[in-house]
Design a protein around this nucleic acid. Structure first.
Lengths: 198, 198
DNA sequence: GACAAAGTGAACCCCTCCGTTCAATTAAAC
DNA sequence: GTTTAATTGAACGGAGGGGTTCACTTTGTC
């Protein structure tokens, strides 16, 4: 019972903070949505700040759980790259994800920790996972990548293109463009990094 | 006198809105910083919303003026790409720019117009300018780019890499990494799009 | 059933802030 | 010098919201 309520509170808080931002969110409204008294919130958490950080933590944990990186091990490298790219773009284009990134960036100045927390939970984990994938392909002799760190960023960035920014700025999602970007990214990436046959 | 005051108000408003966000900015504080009475603001602009939009317009106009795209016409394509890439990344890494993007994205939900206004003033103009550059290089036979729109996004995105996001999330700027990204982007781009000698 | 812990609703204090009103002041125009 | 307009400071109303207190109720435990 204790835990269920606490969870409901943090969940409602996350929803509100992400949708309306920190300043525009009110504790009373969060309490109402969580089906809980305002006092209960102040008993569990000390104040608005603490609640906000708890909500961010929760959302980061959700991201960590959702972001599983299961790259197919077989098939041509071209297909594998494409599958990964598509999964990535789809994941990042989800409205909740876009909104989360928006809010974290906006709230970062007042709460400097949240930016780093988000980076660690999302982008950096994704980067590490894709790095491992690349290094495996290099070990298998499929790719010739001199600078893995750089190549990872290049592939991911090309897949995102301007879509990322557009989404963040309110332009509606166009799945066709996303797909086109991934396909294009794979082609460019392979032209630059395919291992030369010897 | 009228115009000077109006300008001071919009300037102070822009500063405050960008730094603290819409909700957290107060008219009185803006008035104080502009060296103007609160009533004067309400006489010039009707209310907070109008002032906000005026401030956004002003900042967009500033971007339009600053964003001049003077690509060198001579020298190897590799050097020209690098110069453009560096200029772009430098421009985008400026703290004011990062902050502006942050805020616009955050405030977009409550004020849907500002997102589009920003896109038109900044990213889309840059995209168009770089498109023209690419098409010129194609016409000169230096590059072979099947899809200009896509290639533009690819180059720009590679130059930005994850730096963009890191900046937005509070990670301090590392000029070395930015430079490395640009150089890497140029190499990959050229490997993919250099015109084959016939 | 009795007791303790947690939760609830309502009221309260205090602060910030938007937007307005108004008399007093300044500056400009004639 | 008088009139007209803009500006100012100060005060006010009203709303919203953070955080606290307290008496009351629910829930769970022994």
């Amino acid at each position: 019972m204790d835990d269920a309520k606490r969870d409901a509170i943090v969940k409602a808080a996350g929803k509100s903070f992400l949708k309306q931002g920190y300043a525009a969110s009110s504790i009373e409204q969060i309490a109402a949505e969580a089906g809980v008294s305002k006092v209960t919130i102040y008993n569990h958490f000390g104040g608005k700040r603490v609640l906000f950080e708890a909500a961010v933590d929760r959302e980061c944990a959700r991201i960590r759980n959702l972001l599983t990186f299961q790259a197919a091990d077989d098939g041509p490298i071209r297909d594998r790259l494409r599958v990964i790219g598509e999964a990535m773009v789809t994941f990042l284009s989800r409205p909740e994800m876009v909104q989360f990134e928006r809010r974290i960036a906006a709230e970062m100045e007042q709460h400097p920790d949240v930016g780093k927390a988000f980076l660690e939970a999302g982008p950096y984990r994704m980067k590490a996972a894709f790095s491992a994938f690349l290094e495996q392909a290099v070990a298998l002799g499929e790719l010739d990548v001199p600078n893995t760190r750089l190549a990872v960023e290049q592939f991911v960035s090309m897949c995102k293109g301007m879509g990322d920014m557009e989404r963040r700025l309110g332009v509606p999602l166009k799945p066709k463009e996303n797909l086109e970007r991934v396909i294009g990214a794979v082609e460019v990436f392979l032209k630059a990094y395919t291992a030369k046959a010897r």
